[in-house]
């Protein structure tokens, strides 16, 4: 089991946004998060990625297993595509970026500076970073933003290959990726506003 949440409650800026969340993801499984803007999908993903603590409930995530992809791609505009990927590969202790370049069709852009890429190309590079992490649990926040139809297919194929290889994926998205995945609609878990111990101070941290 890569991630297991039971009765999880999360807060954004001290305000509880979601509660009563229970889900589990094992090898080869994907979970799609759905919900309107502001529902708390990003907050949930950041909590799973370990960037913020949960408000209550338990969340177990396998040690050193998360590869997180946020709205921002974490690219340096003055570095080339290859340099950007190689940096993340060495941070995660991997050596080869070739497979990632091929998988996201970045081969022809390999020597271009990331700052000169289009929004969709940058996103492809940001997603290619997931492949060089070598980590099993992909936590993806709206990964298809600014991708064209062909690139969405590339991405869906990459996720399928990742799942087939024993990985797992937790994806917040508004579009249909055509994946065999369970869907968790967070709307029904919206937190009822009430005072939570520690919530007041949390707002100022």
């Amino acid at each position: 089991m890569l991630v297991k949440a039971s009765d999880l409650a999360i807060a954004r800026g001290g305000v509880p946004v979601l509660e009563g969340l229970s889900f589990a993801l094992g090898a080869g499984e994907a979970l799609i998060l759905r919900g309107p803007n502001g529902a708390g999908k990003t907050t949930l993903l950041r909590t799973v990625a370990g960037l913020q603590p949960a408000l209550s409930g338990t969340l177990e995530v396998a040690e050193e297993s998360v590869a997180y992809a946020a709205h921002a791609d974490g690219l340096k505009s003055m570095l080339t595509v290859t340099e950007n990927l190689s940096f993340w590969a060495s941070v995660f202790g991997q050596s080869s970026i070739e497979a990632a370049l091929d998988r996201f069709n970045l081969r022809s852009l390999a020597d271009r500076q990331a700052g000169t890429l289009s929004a969709g190309q940058k996103r492809r590079l940001g997603l290619a970073r997931l492949l060089v992490t070598g980590r099993p649990l992909w936590v993806l926040d709206e990964p298809t933003v600014s991708l064209d139809t062909a690139s969405v297919q590339l991405f869906a194929a990459a996720v399928r290959a990742h799942l087939a290889g024993g990985g797992a994926a937790l994806i917040a998205t508004h579009i249909d990726l055509g994946l065999e995945a369970r869907v968790l609609d967070v709307t029904s878990h919206k937190a009822v506003h009430r005072d939570i111990p520690g919530g007041f101070e949390e707002a100022f941290l």
Partner: peptide, 14 residues
């Protein structure tokens, strides 16, 4: 922070 690298580094093995 602006380009999101800091979040990604915080979730990396570093």
């Amino acid at each position: 922070w602006e380009d999101g690298s800091l979040d990604l580094m915080a979730t990396s093995p570093l």
